[in-house]
Design a binder for these strands. Structure first.
Lengths: 218, 218
DNA sequence: GCCTGTGAATCCATTCACAGCT
DNA sequence: AGCTGTGAATGGATTCACAGGC
């Protein structure tokens, strides 16, 4: 058994979250036990990878048998700290922002939006379907502190993203999830996760052209 | 100079897209030349990484000087094939789907939504702000063929995602961008890119708890 | 002197292959 | 026999360090 204090590769953390998806389905369908091979197939990875990823945090399986689904899922949730409630706030209530605050999956996993802001004062006061009213960014500091916000989500246009990131970190937010297409700067104490949806499309475009180059088009 | 036929690491492709963001800004602000170091800082990577990534595709810089912004941006766009129009379709017109079809950044980069579908027939016929009307999934095969769709975007609930992926690949779509939280299966000839927004949040949660563990909370 | 382009060195992650337990 | 847990081997990607050209 290995303590989790040893360095864990970043990809391992991402995969643990991936593993939990089919595990939820297996639990619901009443499957009691799963092997690393089966789980690997469901997630599109190598079986040894599954075992190694889990081994960073303990011994969750039974040799000759496999992993108990319920127990494994609970273990992963503990590791990823999905077994508690996290408070989020979001800045930038365009289409994407609205889609995120109303996302049921987030709520189900314990990610609660506690406040929504927008730089455009004309939007301030508008009530969202989720119940929140849009607040002005001038209130970020006050509300982030009062509501104990852990994670700030940025869905503003590119030109506002850095200013908003500064406001959020200044208010004490310890991590950011940024959807604006630029690298926001933040103090080292603040974790920043980037999601650039355009990058994914450009990836596909690149591969599509190579494919066309390799094989004749149909 | 190295031909681009040699194997290019997947992360390199992702980063080329990242590099293009600040390059667009630099071009607009009239900066004629940029060094690998400056670009690296703007993108949060190592300068040698920038040079090596570019070297996979040619020699774009001038020793002692740097890279001409306009020329480099054009080169990257050619490599990523962002210099042409791509036709997309999207299936699943919930909040996220609506946010994506109306995203101006995609349109600006040449990604055009040619059709929008939903599994729920009650939504069929509804006209979206972007001008498209929602079509039934029964028309996927016909419309994908007629409109020459290159990329299929899946924003359905988890339970519909695999069925939709099958319909899309069967209709001849050569790549998929899947937002449903499960690994969709597709023939090897079809590229699949996954975006699970929950994974990003779970990542932040993991790091936040380790941080708390390391340092006392405030 | 300055900055690119690139082999060599390092670092990191994945996969193999088998020992160990049930 | 079956499947986990893990050292060893492999395979990639990042970074270093310097040669090459402006």
């Amino acid at each position: 058994m290995m303590s989790e204090s040893g360095k864990v590769p970043a990809p391992t953390i991402e995969r643990l979250a991936i593993y939990s998806r089919p595990l939820e389905d297996l639990l619901e369908s009443g499957t009691p036990v799963v092997s690393s091979e089966r789980l690997a197939i469901l997630c599109g990875v190598n079986p040894a990878q599954v075992r190694k990823d889990l081994a960073y945090f303990g011994e969750f399986g039974v040799r000759g048998l496999g992993y108990e689904v319920r127990e494994l899922l609970r273990a992963i949730r503990t590791i990823l700290a999905t077994d508690r409630v996290w408070h989020l706030c979001i800045v930038g209530m365009g289409n994407l922002g609205r889609a995120l605050v109303e996302n049921e999956n987030f709520k189900k996993r314990g990610y609660l939006f506690a406040a929504a802001f927008d730089v455009d004062n004309r939007k301030v006061g508008e009530r969202l379907r989720c119940g929140l009213a849009i607040e002005p960014i001038a209130k970020i500091k006050e509300l982030v502190g009062r509501l104990n916000v852990d994670i700030g989500v940025i869905t503003t246009p590119q030109e506002d993203a850095q200013r908003v990131a500064d406001l959020l970190t200044d208010a004490g937010v310890k991590s950011l999830l940024n959807f604006a297409p630029l690298q926001v700067r933040a103090p080292a104490s603040c974790f920043v996760e980037h999601v650039d949806l355009g990058v994914k499309l450009e990836n596909l475009a690149y591969h599509l052209t190579r494919l066309r180059g390799a094989k004749p088009h149909k």
